[in-house]
Each structure stands twice: as C-alpha cells, then as structure tokens.
C-alpha cells in the first residue's frame, strides 16, 4: 500500500483527482519510517553478524582489525576447535560433549513435559471436577514464583525421590537409583517448570475446540482416553508444534537448572559454553569463543527461522497468561 503505485499520475477524464491517491516512496515521512526501521534492524542484527565474522577470523586478524570488519581470510579453524578441542577444566573435547548432553536432556524433557501437559490441559478443559480449577489457578500463580525460592528444596525432593525408588529397586535386586544429579532429575525439573505455561496453552486450545465434539464422543461411548486419542489429538497438531517450539528453545537455552541439577559430566551446552568462554586460564581465543557461542545458539535459531510465524504464535500464547 505504501509505495507500490508511487508517482503514477492520475489518468482519467476530466479534472480532479481520480484513482488511488498518489504516494511518493521518497516522501520525508517514508524516509523517516524506513530509515528508523533499518537502523533498528541493524542494531538487532549486528551481534549475530559480529558473532559470525569473528568466528571466521584467525586470532592475528582479530587483534589487528575491528570487530565489524568482514574476515580477510576465512578460516573454519575456530569452529573445529570450539566443537572438538576447546577445554573446560580438565576436559578438552570441545562443545560436542555439551551438545550431545543437551540433546539427551532435550528429547526426553520435551516428550515428557508435552505429554503430561497435554493430558493435563485436556482434563482441565473437558473433565473439570470440583477443585480442578483451583489447582490450575495455583499452578499459574506458581509460574511467577522466582525459581530461586524452590531450587534448594527441589534438590531434597529429587534426593528423596531417588531414595524412595531405590527402596523398591534394591528390594528387587536392581541396585540403588539416583534422581538428583542425573538426566532424569533434570527431565523432572523441566517438566515441572514447563507445566504452567504448557498446560495453559493446551487447556485453552482444547477449550476452544467445539464442546459438542466432546459431547458427541461421550454419546458415542468414548471415554477419557478414547476422546483424547481418537477425537482431540488428531485435531491438535498446530498446538503441539507450538508447544514443541516453546519447549525446544526453552530447554535448550536453560542454564540455571542445568548448573544445579546435573553434574559436570552431563552439563548441558549452555553451561559448558559459559565455562569455556569465562574460564580464566589460558589466552582468550575470541574467535573460538564466538564459534562456540554461535554453535550453542544454532539450535534455537534454526527452530526460530524455520518455524517463523508459529514461533510468534507460541510466544504470544505463552505470554498471555492467566
């Protein structure tokens, strides 16, 4: 609308303006508008650009030139080093370890959290009972409690859970089981803290489906699970995609839970990245640091650029709480 028909003189019979109002693409107003937007876009895009160019330069070039200059000599050395040989403490096998740790954390966490939240949301939308709404309200309020308040007692909960499970596994001759400090402990934590927002997302989605479909299912003799799997799930692909986007980026980017609920051998990528870049020993290799940073940001960035509008929908859904 803005300038597609710019400068086209009004053609027509007789005097007076006809047709679309002529508009000038270079009107001061448009220059202001687009100028501002372009400057803003540069500001937002700059860090990504700096990350990329820095990661492709050799250290001598970094010391000589400025961070905004494109690389004179493109090298992938920093990427290779960041991935496979960068050191955190005594381990010098690069970020690849953190990457795979993150993958192993991500997959079960996403699956478990979405499974539980979708069933919870469905039960809350369609099978309300006395008290269910109250618990849901508390769940939503819980989303606002600073994590720091609950971090330590959750450590105790996970330890006790491990002891509780061990009680049975030892009795069965399977040995002791640990939950705290393991992958599954972290999966539980991600499931818990993902629950408010995901449940809200699913509850609202299922509530927006026509209630009569649910009623028809009941008349047709389908029960709680029958209606969920046969009627609701086939209609819910979009919301599952939104939930996946939300959880994949959220869990991948997590730092706090990774630090507290896992051990160094299974630290997720973000924690390892921070340890590599902010380690005090050795000479700073900025190109390697930036390659490592980019590598860590790659998964959510790919999710973001591929999913496009769905990502926006996901965060908008995630943002509209209550």
């Amino acid at each position: 609308m803005a300038d597609a028909t710019a400068n086209t003189p009004a053609v027509g019979i007789g005097p007076g303006p006809r047709g679309a109002k002529p508009r000038n693409a270079f009107a001061p107003r448009n220059i202001m508008l687009y100028g501002t937007l372009i400057i803003v876009a540069i500001y937002y895009a700059l860090p990504l650009y700096v990350m990329i160019v820095t990661s492709l330069k050799g250290m001598p070039e970094i010391r000589m030139g400025n961070i905004f200059a494109p690389p004179l000599e493109v090298t992938f050395e920093p990427w290779v080093k960041a991935w496979s040989t960068a050191c955190t403490g005594i381990n010098c096998d690069g970020l690849s370890r953190g990457f795979w740790n993150s993958v192993w954390i991500l997959v079960p966490s996403v699956v478990v959290s979405i499974t539980i939240a979708s069933v919870t949301g469905y039960a809350l939308a369609n099978w309300k009972f006395k008290g269910s709404e109250f618990f849901f309200a508390v769940l939503l309020i819980g989303a606002f409690i600073p994590y720091q308040v609950m971090l330590y007692p959750i450590v105790l909960v996970l330890k006790n859970l491990g002891d509780g499970i061990s009680f049975f596994t030892v009795a069965l001759g399977l040995g002791k089981v640990q939950v705290y400090g393991t992958l599954w402990g972290l999966v539980i934590v991600h499931t818990i803290f993902g629950m408010p927002i995901l449940t809200l997302l699913f509850r609202n989605y299922f509530a927006s489906l026509p209630e009569e479909l649910f009623k028809a299912g009941r008349v047709d003799g389908a029960g709680f699970w029958g209606i969920f799997f046969r009627i609701m799930l086939p209609m819910s692909l979009p919301i599952f995609v939104v939930a996946m986007i939300l959880q994949v980026t959220g869990i991948w980017n997590d730092f706090l839970f990774g630090v507290i609920y896992t051990k160094p051998e299974i630290y997720p990528m973000t924690v390892q990245l921070n340890n590599i870049v902010n380690s005090v020993q050795g000479i700073k290799e900025y190109n390697v640091n930036m390659a490592a940073t980019l590598l860590t940001g790659l998964v959510p960035l790919i999710v973001y650029f591929v999913s496009g509008k769905l990502f926006v929908r996901g965060i908008a859904a995630g943002a509209v709480k209550g």
Binding site: P210, E212, L213, K215, A216, G217, R218, V219, D220, G221, A222, R230, I231, P234, M235
Partner: peptide, 18 residues
C-alpha cells in the same frame, strides 16, 4: 454414562469428527 442410556443425539454444530 451417556452411551449407556440408549439415546442418540444430534447437535447444533453437527459435531462431526473432522
């Protein structure tokens, strides 16, 4: 349960499983 009552029901929005 609704399915055990010996009824059939027709809804306003048709409620057909899409």
């Amino acid at each position: 349960e609704p399915s055990e009552r010996g009824i059939g029901m027709v809804f306003q929005s048709y409620a057909l499983y899409p």
